[in-house]
Design a protein around this nucleic acid. Structure first.
Lengths: 249, 249
DNA sequence: CGCCTATTTGATCTGATTCAAACAATGTGG
DNA sequence: CCACATTGTTTGAATCAGATCAAATAGGCG
């Protein structure tokens, strides 16, 4: 619990994110800033919430990377989404009591827990914020849909390229893209669990992408060498992300 | 436009559905019943909305089956979800202007178009209905997540079994399950596009499920011979559907 | 340095695809 | 009500994308 360590840029992350999702009024921003936050740090690869729990708070990611995942009977894991600062990966718990999946840190992370009570009050009193929150969960669903397409109908090469395009766009939207390169603290096994492939095949696909001079992934950092080409390889169309203003290229 | 043909059971479908999702007050029900509906019939295999459109109405499915789908560059199709009466498959268009996928009828269907304007008013004025609508889109997302798991980490046999379990539960919840059997007006190609498989392999998998005496799928009807066994084969756990009261078996 | 975890490589295997053709069902018009 | 066309299902054979197994190599870090 490092409430006082949380720096200014982290504490305004939620406001930045929601402003990128919907228009807010000055009063909305004030109400958001007054939200009670319980700020907590977690190490890498640590469960924040587990499937089956009934949380009474939502967790706002302030720094670091997280993911949602499910484990099936035979122990296989499927990652459902990746999350960057500003995301509230369990926002749905506001209206769906029981978690149907787990959320874990990928890197060391800092999260702010916000009581459901406070969020409910916000939703009642501030329709624009309610709109922004709902919209965030809907964009979430749009990303799930695109993953379904990738898993169902794209080959490994296109699928991985598409995933990197998505992450690039989202990272860029929260200002973490540095010259077509960003921290991506995941292993190739994580990428396998996200893309429905085996770790070995992820490795080979990464090498193919490297050989085609599109991207390279080394020491937890993705560098895009040819953004145009990557999009072409993935047949990537960013409209499904429903970003208002694309801070792209 | 068959407003007057729409029978009583169809017109209360939405109310039934929302009541199964969240608790409503009598006044909510009254407001819902007063919603202006533009009822329209469509033949089978007809697009109701296409990707890229910006609808100003939502479509409530009154009768028949529909699906969401996306088509990628090389012409491959991925079905994203199946929909039964009571569903509003484009409810997200209320907050996300542009459709990122299409919606089509599978069988002949009857839909009621409801202006966004009216729904917005409802959401402003009746918090419980707002809650129910939001919750419906969240359950949608939960189903997407389960499809991601199926596509990524289940084999063809488990995946198809799981899909049938999902459909059985949902069909049951809207009262369309008749003695462990229900209309499922889709082709094996449709099942292939939903499960990320080829039509040939769907055919072979269906035969395997038949041979195991779990289900049979003939002339647009799915009959479950062994509900327990089917759930076991799929490792099906219905909790992700977040149904309040399971009107099951 | 030495341990542990992640990546890379090679060889082999397999679940699922593709192609092609036969067959069954359903519908349509004469 | 039959003939024909169309669409959907079934079967077989060949092929392939990606999985699995196993072992070697490379990083990161206390």
């Amino acid at each position: 619990m490092n409430f006082f360590n949380s720096d200014r840029s982290e504490r305004t992350r939620l406001i930045m994110k929601l402003e990128s999702i919907a228009e807010l009024e000055p009063q909305d921003v004030g109400t958001l800033a007054a939200l009670p936050l319980r700020v907590t740090d977690f190490p890498a690869r640590h469960d924040i919430i587990q499937e089956g729990e009934k949380p009474s708070e939502c967790c706002l990611l302030l720094a670091g990377w997280a993911c949602r995942y499910k484990v099936i009977e035979d122990g296989k894991r499927q990652i459902l989404s990746f999350h960057t600062p500003g995301d509230i990966p369990d926002l749905q718990s506001l209206h769906i009591r029981t978690m149907d999946h787990s959320i874990a840190s990928l890197s060391p992370i800092r999260v702010a827990f916000i009581p459901h009570r406070s969020l409910d009050a916000l939703i009642q009193g501030r329709p624009r914020i309610a709109h922004a929150f709902w919209r965030e969960t809907l964009i979430d669903a749009a990303i799930f849909r695109e993953w379904i397409v990738g898993l169902g109908r794209r080959n490994a090469y296109q699928h991985m390229a598409h995933l990197f395009c998505e992450l690039r766009m989202r990272v860029s939207a929260v200002g973490l893209l540095e010259d077509e390169s960003f921290e991506l603290p995941v292993t190739q096994s994580d990428l396998a669990d996200a893309s429905g492939l085996s770790p070995v095949h992820v490795n080979r696909t990464l090498m193919d992408l490297r050989k085609a001079n599109l991207v390279s992934f080394r020491s937890s950092r993705l560098t895009i060498h040819d953004w145009e080409g990557l999009q072409r390889a993935a047949h990537f169309d960013p409209r499904y992300l429903h970003q208002q203003r694309w801070k792209s290229a």
